[in-house]
Amino acid sequence: MDISIVIPLLNEKDSLQELYAWILKVMQSHQYAYEIIFIDDGSTDGSWKVIEELSSEHKEVKGIRFQRNYGKSQALDAGFEKANGAVVITMDADLQDNPEEIPELYDLIIKEDFDLISGWKKKRYDNVITKNIPSKLFNLAARKTSGLKLHDFNCGLKAYKNTVVKSVKVSGEMHRYIPVLAKNEGFDKIGEKVVQHQARKYGETKFGMSRFINGFLDLITISFLSKFGKRPMHIFGLWGTLMFIFGLLSAGYIGAMKLYKLSVGAKTILVTDNPWFYIALTAMILGVQLFLAGFIGELLIKTKSNEKHYKIRQNLNL
């Protein structure tokens, strides 16, 4: 199979028939062998009924229905698991991503041998205040933190080699950082393509300030995980050891000074009246806690399961 098109969605029933017809036109004109995987992330507007109708009429249309709303990352993860195409295309269901871009994305993966191509919506039709400006700030921070020179990390239109989507685990709200996750797995041929952005035709955006804030929090998380996710002892153990040694040396110094003053008959104060006693004690306690955090982190990594963070209610054609 040439292409798997993975489409997560939430309450997009008005756009699904039109989106399918648009994709079908592109696929037929280029004679691709393809599948379309719709992942219904807990829609309440009848989106699943439309997917059922499409899948019953067209065997290339497949559907995954979540038990409830779990988020875009979980939807993509479920779609990636089922994708069979040599190239996997992700796109949003709101008609703001243009299916006409698919052939060029496919060629970049197959002919130019890229591992991943990320879309760049250079000209956007979103609200400038609520989405465009926050998006620019977010992408600037993501570039600086990840080292990937991409302009639009959050663009839903991306193309991957099948081996990439089978290697990355997308959870939480990490869908924005799939290029970073891919880079961390050793896929370093990552490119970017300017894609056409369409104005929203139906429904309303799911973007809000909470997602903007969550995006920055996830950026901090993935930056930490990319460096220490597989070796937490290297960070927690290091700082824990340093703090414990600092506290131990401080306590030793306090004890030595106490003994010295006693030996020369000088006036002394209780050890507990010395503020350095509490600094030393705190440093040793924090040091032990940090070391244990690193140790527990190592145990979790070695014993973690591949448990999915979503429940599928129904599958179609899968």
Rank of each mutant, 00 (worst) to 15 (best):
S171I: 07
Q67F: 04
P8L: 00
S118N: 15
K189N: 09
R176S: 07
P275S: 14
I102Y: 07
I102N: 07
F38S: 11
N98Y: 04
Q67T: 08
H234E: 09
I109Q: 11
G265R: 09
V180D: 04
I5C: 02
F207I: 15
E104T: 15
Y177W: 04
R313H: 13
L249E: 04
I110R: 14
I285R: 11
L105A: 08
D188A: 06
L219Q: 11
L105N: 07
S263I: 10
L242C: 07
S223N: 15
Q28S: 15
V6S: 00
D94G: 02
S29H: 08
S210P: 00
T272H: 06
I64K: 09
V6R: 00
P134K: 04
S4V: 05
Y160V: 09
D40G: 11
A75H: 08
G240A: 14
V164Q: 11
I39T: 12
S15G: 11
L238R: 14
N315Q: 11
K308Y: 01
I89T: 00
W276S: 10
I220Y: 11
N306S: 13
V50M: 13
L9F: 05
S223F: 09
L54F: 02
L157H: 02
F277R: 01
I296F: 09
K72A: 02
Y20L: 08
Q17G: 07
D273V: 03
K193N: 05
S210T: 03
E112N: 15
S250P: 02
G156D: 00
G46H: 14
I23W: 03
R68E: 06
V50Q: 13
A251E: 12
R143W: 00
M284F: 00
F236R: 07
K59H: 12
I117K: 07
Q31H: 13
L318E: 10
Q96H: 07
D94M: 06
I190R: 10
H30S: 02
G172I: 03
K158W: 04
Q289W: 01
E52F: 05
M233W: 01
S15T: 13
G191I: 05
S15W: 05
E81L: 07
N98G: 04
L116M: 14
P134T: 04
Y202V: 14
G156V: 01
A83D: 01
L95D: 03
V88W: 12
M257Y: 03
D113Y: 08
T221Y: 06
G208Y: 00
V128S: 12
K201R: 14
L259I: 14
S146W: 14
E104L: 15
K206Y: 05
E57V: 06
S15C: 09
T205W: 01
D273Q: 09
F38H: 11
Q96E: 13
T268W: 07
I269C: 02
Q74L: 05
A33Y: 08
E185R: 13
W276G: 05
N184A: 03
